[in-house]
Design a protein around this nucleic acid. Structure first.
Length: 644
DNA sequence: GTTTCGGTTCTTTTT
DNA sequence: GAACCGAAAC
């Protein structure tokens, strides 16, 4: 058995082996937060707590998996029984069991962002809110989400719409109501519904609540500063019995308020739990002192935070560099040159990351890296599981599992040649709003409603649907997808996309990925909740060659690299102009985001400051350097401008 | 009457 | 890219 004292410092040890009750661990960046959580889990298992009575809530599935894997290495196989995952996963798991208690069917489908958006779009069209003067569906969607996550009426958020918007606040509420009704009719929940409904379950059903309160003797929450109000209440209720609530977080790294996260949750934690014990982790093992000096300086001015100062343990090295470049092109060339330099001095490609505020910030760099054949990895704006081709092949599974899933049906039928919106609507009404793909009569009815040119390809799809029962494929999602690909989809991809082969590779990956699921239902239930980071873990594991990592700062949270280059440090980009005017605490949050970016770096840090931004029409826009650069004491950084 | 195709415009952050 | 719009093609 491991002696925890040998592997943890005093701060970490105190937290990991504490007795119980409410506990707040304030863990600054790079101070071994994950390590502490891992050993906390291992310690509890070691102490004889049954793993199934431990609940570990994390921000991503990747984090949960990593922690449990590491805890297993310390405390043995028993750790496998710990409940670990994201809030959405927990909610989904509970609702699959208890949905009927709040008036839902157990087999509800989960709408991902893409599905939600098109459903909102369809609601807007029904009310004739179409045209340039109306907000985009995605914008309305975000209002609905804000309302759901704060439990306030949607009218409270219409101020976020542009003043030119033609939508009155009653109209917004109307569409919001329609959207909820449509979801109910489809038997579907969006991401927010999962949380909201899970909370409803707890509020309305004391018996169920009691059952889980009893089960979970210990509740551990990672990244507590990024929980929203619903999540905080969920945690509070579920841990309300045994009151062993262990929350870990860093208010400096709260960067999700636009998604409803309320860092008051962590700030006011001591008031809500007066009997808590607090632990601070401030010893940083990751970064050289010069990088920590920049991190400490940039965050110091933010209001309302727990005072923490990163203490360095590593030896002095070089100062972070600020490179003032002309424009995006020059920035890309600078980054390329720096990457080559770092490689020459011995860093592996996978030791280097380029971080930025928004995905489109990396376009120029991507072009340069591609041209120069520098391998790189990127998780783009579109999530793996929301790409068109992935959703296309999943639609046949969805149709098999849920007869009321109109969205999947539309998607599937739209793949047939010569079938568009009208053809789909005709078929759906011929079916009377229910398509049971496993019923031969239903399949025939679809066939009859199709125009002749589409019937032949539909027969091929029918054969796949038929085989589902006949050959009992309900435990093999991969096989269904494979057959569908052969029957129809391969041809479709090759005719539709110029990067067809790559998309087919993705699908092959997906088929492999289905192997870990026991049934089509289980696969579908999980797939909507998988993030691109989760998918990427697989991709990276399978990739023979490593590359430079390109990432948004948000996606880089929790990760670290030897060398980090940050792009577009200009006012308007970083901090983002929109955030500044859209929300009150915008600047403070952007500053925390910058803090997160800086603290990803172990040895080398470069900050790029372009002077101008080129618009599409060729005009240039002058940019002032980011206020985050300007407010740094000049002696903390080295100016390397003019290297060219 | 429908579907498809080609051109144009825009791009914050994510479970 | 992908969403949207108008025009060509079926």
């Amino acid at each position: 058995m491991t002696d925890f004292r040998d592997v943890l410092n005093d701060e970490q040890y105190a937290a990991a082996t504490a007795e119980g009750g409410p506990m707040l661990v304030l863990a600054a960046a790079g101070t071994g937060k994950t390590r502490t959580l891992v050993y906390r889990v291992a310690y509890l298992v070691d102490q004889g707590v049954a793993p199934r009575r431990i609940l570990l809530l994390t921000f991503t599935n990747r984090a949960a998996k990593e922690m449990l894997d590491r805890a297993r290495a310390v405390a043995g196989e028993g750790v496998g029984g710990v409940w670990g995952g994201t809030f959405h996963h927990l909610a989904n798991r509970l609702l699959r069991r208890h949905a009927p208690e709040i008036g839902y069917d157990r087999g509800y489908t989960i709408l991902d962002q893409d599905d939600s958006r098109s459903l909102v779009s369809s609601c807007m069209k029904d009310r004739k809110f179409t045209g340039k003067e109306f907000p985009k569906p995605a914008v309305l969607m975000s209002l609905f989400s804000s309302a759901a996550n704060t439990e306030r009426p949607v009218e409270d958020f219409v101020w976020k719409l542009s003043e030119k918007s033609a939508m009155a606040s009653e109209d917004v509420a109307l569409v919001c109501g329609d959207y909820s009704a449509r979801k109910k009719k489809l038997g579907a929940m969006d991401f927010d519904d999962l949380l909201v409904n899970c909370l409803r379950l707890f509020r309305e059903n004391p018996a169920t609540t009691e059952r889980y309160r009893e089960q979970f003797v210990h509740v551990l929450v990672d990244e507590y500063q990024d929980t929203n109000r619903i999540q905080a209440e969920l945690v509070g209720r579920i841990a309300g019995g045994h009151r062993n609530l262990f929350v870990v977080g860093d208010d400096f790294q709260s960067i999700y308020s636009w998604r409803g996260a309320d860092f008051q949750n962590i700030i006011s934690f001591p008031e809500r739990y007066p009997d808590l014990s607090t632990y601070k982790l401030e010893t940083n093992y990751r970064s050289v002192p010069e990088i920590l000096a920049v991190a400490n300086a940039c965050i110091a001015g933010n209001p309302e935070q727990f005072q923490k100062t990163l203490r360095a343990t590593r030896d002095s090295y070089r100062k972070p560099a600020v490179a003032r470049v002309r424009d995006g092109q020059e920035q890309a060339r600078y980054v390329l040159e720096e990457i080559r330099q770092l490689r020459r001095s011995g860093y592996k490609a996978s030791d280097i990351a380029v971080l930025y505020r928004a995905h489109f910030n990396s376009m120029e760099l991507q072009m340069v890296l591609t041209r120069e054949q520098v391998p790189y990895m990127i998780t783009s704006g579109v999530r793996f599981f929301e790409q068109a081709h992935i959703k296309d092949v999943c639609s046949i599974l969805r149709v098999l599992v849920s007869p009321t899933d109109e969205m999947a049906f539309s998607r599937l039928l739209g793949l047939l040649p010569g079938v568009g919106p009208k053809g789909i609507a005709k078929a759906w009404s011929a079916l009377g709003g229910v398509f049971n793909a496993r019923d031969a009569a239903h399949r025939k009815r679809v066939r009859a409603s199709l125009r002749p040119a589409a019937r032949e390809p539909w027969s091929a799809v029918e054969a796949v649907l038929q085989a589902y029962d006949e050959e009992d494929l309900s435990d093999d999602a991969g096989e269904v997808i494979h057959r569908f690909m052969e029957a129809l989809y391969k041809k479709h991809v090759m005719n539709t996309y110029d990067n067809g082969p790559r998309r087919l590779d993705d699908i092959t990956e997906l088929i492999l990925y289905t192997g870990r699921f026991e049934s089509v239902e289980q696969f579908l239930s999980d797939v909507a909740l998988l993030t691109n980071l989760d998918a990427e873990v697989e991709a990276v594991a399978n990739a023979p060659e490593d590359g430079i990592r390109l990432s948004t700062v948000h996606q880089a949270k929790g990760l670290e690299w030897s060398a980090v280059i940050i792009l577009w440090m200009t006012d308007g980009m970083f901090p983002s102009a929109r955030t500044l005017w859209e929300s009150e605490g915008g600047e403070a949050e952007e500053r925390r985001l910058f803090y997160v970016a800086v603290t990803r770096a172990k040895d080398e840090l470069r900050l790029c400051v372009p002077e101008v931004r080129r618009n599409r029409d060729g005009t240039v826009m002058y940019c002032s350097p980011s206020r985050f650069i300007e407010e740094l004491p000049p002696d903390l950084v080295e100016d390397v401008s003019g290297w060219f």
